[in-house]
Design a protein around this nucleic acid. Sequence first.
DNA 1: TCCTACGATGGACTTCGTCCAAGTCAAGAA
DNA 2: TTCTTGACTTGGACGAAGTCCATCGTAGGA
Lengths: 136, 136
Amino acid sequence: MSDLLGRLRGRGWRMTSQRRVVAEVLDGDHVHLTADEVHLRAAERLPEISRATVYNTLGELVALGEVLEVSTVGRAKRYDPNARNPHQHLVCSGCGTVRDVHPVGNAIGDLPEEERFGFAVGSVEITYRGLCPGCA
Amino acid sequence: MSDLLGRLRGRGWRMTSQRRVVAEVLDGDHVHLTADEVHLRAAERLPEISRATVYNTLGELVALGEVLEVSTVGRAKRYDPNARNPHQHLVCSGCGTVRDVHPVGNAIGDLPEEERFGFAVGSVEITYRGLCPGCA
DNA sequence: TCCTACGATGGACTTCGTCCAAGTCAAGAA
DNA sequence: TTCTTGACTTGGACGAAGTCCATCGTAGGA
């Protein structure tokens, strides 16, 4: 995710202060923010930024493959800036904390041919659930 | 899922016509309906049934472990009546079709101890994504 | 049959997200 | 540097999904 701004510029992105701020918010700590949280943090630096712009920018970052949408427990989508490093998620059933994890093994290979129903399987998302030390 | 009504009665569920109809809708074909679709189908048999009741009943069935919530691509939650048979999902990125699948292997075991961060990992959800024959 | 606590109702409300017309501005052209 | 233009932003309306709550109805035990 570092040098995100450079990569975006290289792809012909028109750089605006709004887009810069959204990208910088995501480039910070690697947490999994909701769109609303991104808006909140962006607004600390650029108070006039609108919700629509945050949604637009997040959508573009997802389309470019720079950010992943992860659907966790809550209602709101969360955005994962760690898209360049393949990983899965470990979610606490108590407090909702999300951690990036890297299981071994080959999950796609674990799906037998006769269970694929002719699909061209391209990716797999794995969510581990359990209780974190604090909630146990 | 068969004899769902019997099991619910055994658990002390107060049986009402609304709950019966919701359970019967889910007990039908094993598709993955949204709450709204459940309401629609329930209303065919019991036109006065309210949305709130459908949401309440689905929530109770999920709490009882008789039905699973699956979070797919779209915005609405989907309800999977096949909770008694452990399985994972294969989703078409084109049309959104969802199929139940049974991968081999031990996905929980694939998560190394040092990647668990002290969590007591209890379950794992796997979503395979790809294009179905129709969309390819 | 009667009672009563549990469940159903429907409408207001909240949350999350999208759409759109109008205004603004980044960046290339001159 | 200034001009131009089309891409970007804005904010408010809108829509979908889900929750809440006061009130009414009824399943099932006494």
